Simulated assay, not measured.
Amino acid sequence: MTQLVEKRTGNGTKIKKVRNLVLKIIGAIVIAIVLFLGIVYITNVISSHSEAKRIEPYGQLVSVDGKNMNVFIQGEGEETVVLLPGYGTAAPALDFKLLIDELSPFYKVVAVEPFGYGLSDGTEKERTTENIVSEVHEALQQLNIDRYTLMGHSIAGIYGIDYVNKYSDEVTAFVGIDSSVPTQPGMDAKLPINTFAFLKKSGLLRLATKLSGDSYAGLAFDDQTVEQMKMISNKNMYTPTTLNEMEHISSNFKEAQALTFPKDLPLLLFVQANNEGVEGWIPLHEGQIKDSVHGKVVTMDGSHYLHHTHFKEIAENFRAFMKKVNGVPSIN
């Protein structure tokens, strides 16, 4: 009997020791995670403060709805091209730099940075298509720009189709750079907005971006521009303004489904040839031009950011297209 009690006591002691060991290990892991998150958070705060001082201004600030919207202008051509960014393009004027340099010898090029982008202020106003389009238009009005081609990347295809219908007397043509189509599938998905907000505030987003490698490697951007784009990206990614825009993506796409491009509006669409993420990507764009008097789809091999690698071809094709629309004979 005594031996049995001693055995049970011994087993109980061993279990208690194992339990204590497990608890210590769990405690150590929790402490390590807390320390890791603390270091990541503090590093992000320090880095953000440091980078804010190193971001170099460009363009000019225009007063819109009581806030500052940044607009970059290059070139002195008689015709004007207005550039609009895709969703989440942190520094539009810099992101479009290679294309701007190709267009500006022939056109006045205006890169608009909507609220929450580039060096523009953020805003608490809902990021509906109606508000975004109205704000961009107001910025152009402030600059006395009232006749122009609208050229937009990605989600600018959604804002652009609304824009050209509202301001048809101002827009001379629409050019899409792998632009979104209102009826493309998958745009009603629920996005984890709170998770993105946490990643931003915690500093984990900065860490993930750093570990993911250099997305600008091998591109024609100079080192200074790349450094500026990375710092502005750290500042603008998943801010309340851009998260609000993300929240409205589904409804903005849905509302655009009732719209089509005006038949008499010249429509040039540069489309990624190998987009495997969206079913029927090329036919979707071909459907947009089928009733256009002047409509053309140009497919290009490359990533969604076609203007990073095909900026020369985009500029050349655009010039040739507009000459044909305007009845100007080509010179070989």
Score class of each variant (00 low, 15 high):
V5H: 05
T9A: 08
K16L: 11
R19H: 01
A28F: 08
I29P: 04
A32T: 10
V34D: 08
V34C: 11
T43S: 15
N44Y: 11
S48W: 01
R54N: 14
Q60N: 12
V62R: 04
V62D: 00
V62E: 00
S63F: 05
I73H: 08
G77Q: 09
E79P: 02
L84A: 06
P92G: 05
L99H: 08
S104M: 09
E113A: 08
G116A: 08
L119I: 12
S120R: 08
S120V: 00
G122W: 09
E124I: 11
E124M: 13
K125S: 04
I132P: 04
Y148C: 02
G152D: 01
S154D: 14
G160E: 06
G160M: 03
N165L: 03
D169E: 14
D169C: 07
T172H: 12
T172L: 06
S180A: 15
M187T: 06
P192G: 11
T195D: 06
A197V: 05
S202G: 13
T209K: 07
Y216G: 11
A220Q: 07
M229V: 02
I232K: 04
N234K: 15
K235W: 02
N236R: 13
T239L: 06
M246V: 05
E247G: 07
I249M: 09
K254N: 12
A256S: 12
L259D: 00
L265Q: 10
N275T: 10
G277F: 08
I282M: 01
P283C: 07
G287Q: 04
V297S: 00
V297D: 02
M300P: 01
D301Y: 10
Y305S: 11
H308C: 08
T309A: 12
H310P: 01
H310R: 14
F311T: 06
G327C: 04
